[in-house]
Nucleic acid binder design. Structure first.
Lengths: 119, 119
DNA sequence: TTATCACATGAACAATTATTCATATGAAGG
DNA sequence: CCTTCATATGAATAATTGTTCATGTGATAA
């Protein structure tokens, strides 16, 4: 976290305290951390697959596991993460728990990401 | 990666091969991996801060380090990651290297993420 | 060339994390 | 009650990754 030994302190920015101004214009650290955390949740193949599987309809945990060829435990663990970030919601129906995308924000995010990936 | 010992195979999905159909509708694994990887790049506080710092104007490495109170080495390492994902571009001017956002995709992504974070 | 500045990079370490295995919870039916 | 099915969760392990430190590269100026 501390600066390295000898920074030349030679700013290329025009103006004297341009660096401080720029720093003060950044959102609070807490907000930036939450933002990074949100992206981190999307940043895992398994979770992305789960979200994609839920694109068209809600699914229960076992079905997600079968669709993705994954263990029930692993899926459940990741659903927990997705739940914590409010990316999915769920409802109970007997023994089964059905998960679905929480809102259209999720679709928008993935769609935007896809645009970049597909160049 | 292999399935767990004894899945009951009791699909809740209507229809017999609904599971296979859903699986086949998913994008290729490679694409989903790339998508996750893109989000993973956004999923780090340092890189998010760097991108934010570049929102208004291009900056050289040393200035970014000063704005974010980080070591030059750490910034450089992360710029490498951002470069590899085509989120930033750069140009050389004498000894300094100036980085800037590659396109408006980056702004859109961050803006969308912010909407979710700010509830 | 030699010295210095700005940046890049390799290695090592610490911290985070996704999966597996085993077990616990909770609902429905007998 | 007891059993079974569906899901959740805790612990342990392996793999990934961000930072630091030290050093390398490339450009400018004397």
């Amino acid at each position: 976290m501390s600066d390295q030994a000898s920074l030349p302190e030679q700013a290329h920015l025009s103006g004297n305290n341009a660096i401080e101004t720029l720093r003060d214009d950044l959102p609070d650290d807490e907000i930036l951390y939450d933002l990074a955390e949100l992206f981190r949740v999307f940043g895992d193949s398994t979770r992305i697959k789960i979200l994609y599987a839920l694109f068209e309809s809600e699914l229960c945990v076992g079905d997600i596991a079968q669709v993705l060829h994954m263990s029930q435990s692993s899926v459940s663990h990741q659903l927990r993460v997705l739940k914590a970030s409010k990316l999915v919601k769920f409802r109970r129906e007997g023994k089964a728990v059905f998960y679905s995308l929480d809102d259209d924000h999720v679709r928008s995010m993935i769609a935007l990401g896809m645009e970049h990936v597909e160049e």
